[in-house]
Design a binder for these strands. Structure first.
Length: 278
DNA sequence: ATTGGAACCTGGTGGC
DNA sequence: TGCCACCAGGTTCCAA
């Protein structure tokens, strides 16, 4: 489900309720996630104050007194604030009961997400290997251009590589490439510097817009208040295979890149460096 | 070192 | 209706 905008939306929603609250109780309904939840450490979160909620890539970092926790929502996870006496739903895995009558509930049907308690989140191997934040000043045309040199694989896989660039998942990779007029199968080292500049600008733009709209919603993204995002109506290519391109009217093509659905316009998105970006 | 593919799961959808 | 195959927003791990 979640790409960067959805995780950011979740972070803001949860932080508004959870910041500076005391964790009174931790309930683990089902420890089976991507990695088994460490029950002993997780229980030790009780009695600690949540000082801040931060996001790094698609990871949520909760900073408490001395033990902290990392949450990844995987493909289908969500966090929502619930009332203390509310009934749990199917696939509610973990609940953190706060001292303000609110509860943070982690739900994840496919169990690709994770919940990790650690004394040093920023030094955790999942976090240290992450690449630049797309909305930071560190992500610029020079950075991307240098990264792409000597790379023969296609550009789509590159912008989805979290060791280089975090937060761009399948939806926004499709969308950003369309907006940049770059064919997803273009060899990475064939992009010109100006194309890198355009691609960087479009990635930043689409992520900012999606955050402003509260995240995308394809099937079941819900924010911390349990409400869906409203970005899907503005998607140009994702989920629109065989429908007319919003730009030129030709039918959009679909292919698979790394077994991920890839939709593009063969007219507007160019395979050659010589063609002018749309 | 790089790259492609399988694996981890459940749920929804569409075809027969 | 029911059964079955296939697909899904992510990431890790393994083998070539």
């Amino acid at each position: 489900m979640p790409e960067l905008p959805e995780v950011e939306t979740t972070k803001r929603g949860i932080a508004a309720y959870a910041k500076n609250t005391l964790i009174q109780q931790v309930i683990v309904h089902n420890p089976r996630l991507r990695w088994p939840v460490d029950l002993t450490r997780t229980k030790q979160l009780a009695g600690q104050i949540i000082h801040s909620v931060q996001r790094r890539g698609k990871y949520l970092l909760f900073f408490c007194d001395y033990l902290h926790f990392i949450i990844h929502l995987g493909m289908s996870g969500s966090l929502r604030m619930t009332q203390h006496d509310e009934h749990i739903k199917k696939h509610d895995h973990i609940q953190l009961v706060l001292d303000n009558q609110q509860t943070i509930t982690f739900n994840d049907p496919r169990r690709f997400g994770c919940f990790i308690v650690t004394p040093e989140p920023l030094n955790h191997k999942l976090i240290t290997k992450l690449g630049v934040e797309p909305l930071s000043a560190d992500f610029h045309a020079n950075y991307l251009y240098k990264r792409l040199q000597n790379k023969k694989i296609n550009i789509k896989q590159c912008i989805m590589n979290s060791q280089w660039l975090v937060g761009v998942g399948n939806i926004y990779a499709n969308e950003a490439l369309f907006l940049s007029g770059i064919h997803p199968l273009r060899p990475a080292n064939s992009l010109s510097h100006s194309e890198c500049l355009l691609l960087v600008q479009q990635i930043k733009q689409i992520l900012r817009t999606a955050i402003r709209h509260g995240g995308t919603t394809l099937k079941d993204f819900i924010n911390a208040q349990g409400k869906p995002g409203y970005f899907q109506q503005t998607l140009n290519v994702y989920g629109r295979a065989n429908k007319p391109c919003h730009h030129c009217g030709n039918l959009l093509h679909e292919t698979r890149i790394n077994s991920r659905s890839t939709v593009f316009c063969s007219v507007c998105q160019h395979l050659n460096i010589n063609q002018t970006p749309a």
